[in-house]
């Protein structure tokens, strides 16, 4: 469990990082928190020829909140900061709650939001949160900057829209209405393990008391985090109730494509996804201010 030989470079700016990786070729990788990449290297599942360490790039760690409440989180922000920073929790409470489910404290101290998205484990929490929050992912590469919606970022298991040599600069989370109802729940084998299945949800209400807008996303229920359109359609325009939530939960099966692994069967993930949709919506509704 020792990695094969690689070159290590520390950089202090985004520009330096992207020009260096272009020189190093396609087998070079960026190093963020290293909580997934380094174990993969130790197992020799990944054998990059060069690591370009982003930990010394201050501009990647910025966290900023606009006057309208929109939240900008630099790619190198640590998961632990997402969990504990009161300003982040104020700007988007779903992020903080979900971040606490990521692995254990030691891993959250090192792991980053950008690293989690770039790694794109379909059972990871933060990609699901980016998706359900309509986050925009800001990318930088030699050919310039571009912005991609979270819904278009995840291509498959461990694969994303990132081009060769491109890195995630930051995530943009749109403003979060104060009255929004939200919740996150997951089932895992042990605390801190990847989710067997997890559900994130929020909904807003109009003046009549009906749901005006909502999003639901599932993790661990397909090759990527998935937006759940069917329950969202069921909810939109209706007045919240346990019966409505149960009805919404019944529609989830068509939106997910879970898999078997040693920790749970696809059947398990399918039925528990429905259970969690109902529970998450109930928790969200109970939390209304």
């Amino acid at each position: 469990m020792k990695p094969s030989r690689f070159n290590y470079y520390a950089v202090d700016s985004i520009d330096a990082a992207i020009s260096l990786i272009a020189q190093q070729g396609e087998d070079a990788r960026f190093l963020a928190g290293g909580q997934s990449l380094v174990p993969m290297m130790n197992f020799r599942v990944a054998a990059p020829t060069a690591l370009i360490d982003l930990n010394g790039v201050p501009e990647l760690s910025n966290v900023r909140i606009d006057n309208d409440g929109a939240l900008h989180i630099g790619a190198m922000a640590r998961t632990r900061q997402l969990e504990t920073d009161p300003e982040i929790a104020e700007a988007n409470p779903l992020i903080a709650v979900a971040a606490a489910y990521v692995a254990h404290t030691q891993i959250r101290n090192r792991g980053t939001i950008g690293g989690s998205l770039a790694h794109a484990d379909p059972a990871a929490e933060l990609p699901g949160i980016a998706l359900v929050c309509d986050a925009e992912i800001h990318l930088r590469g030699l050919s310039g900057a571009r912005v991609i919606e979270a819904a278009k970022f995840f291509d498959g298991v461990f694969t994303t829209a990132l081009a060769d040599g491109e890195l995630i600069e930051k995530l943009y989370f749109p403003p979060w209405p104060e009255q929004r109802c939200w919740a996150f729940q997951e089932i895992s084998r042990r605390e801190g393990d990847f989710a067997l299945v997890g559900i994130a949800a929020w909904f807003d209400m109009d003046a009549s008391g009906a749901i005006s807008d909502c999003r639901l996303a599932a993790i661990g229920a397909g090759d990527t985090p998935l937006l759940l359109d069917s329950p969202a359609q069921t909810l939109t325009g209706s007045v919240p109730s346990d019966a409505l939530f149960e009805k919404a939960a019944e529609t989830v099966a068509g939106d997910i494509a879970p898999f078997d692994d040693i920790h749970a069967s696809a059947d398990y993930r399918r039925e528990v996804a429905a259970v969690l949709v109902a529970r998450t919506l109930k928790t969200a509704w109970e939390r209304r201010r």
């Binding site: 089932i187 084998r189 067997l196 920790h263 749970a264 069967s265 059947d267 398990y268 039925e271 528990v272």
Partner: peptide, 11 residues
């Protein structure tokens, strides 16, 4: 006694 095994029994 995994959640998967118990759910399978319960199902």
């Amino acid at each position: 006694l995994t959640p998967d095994r118990l759910r399978k029994l319960l199902r």
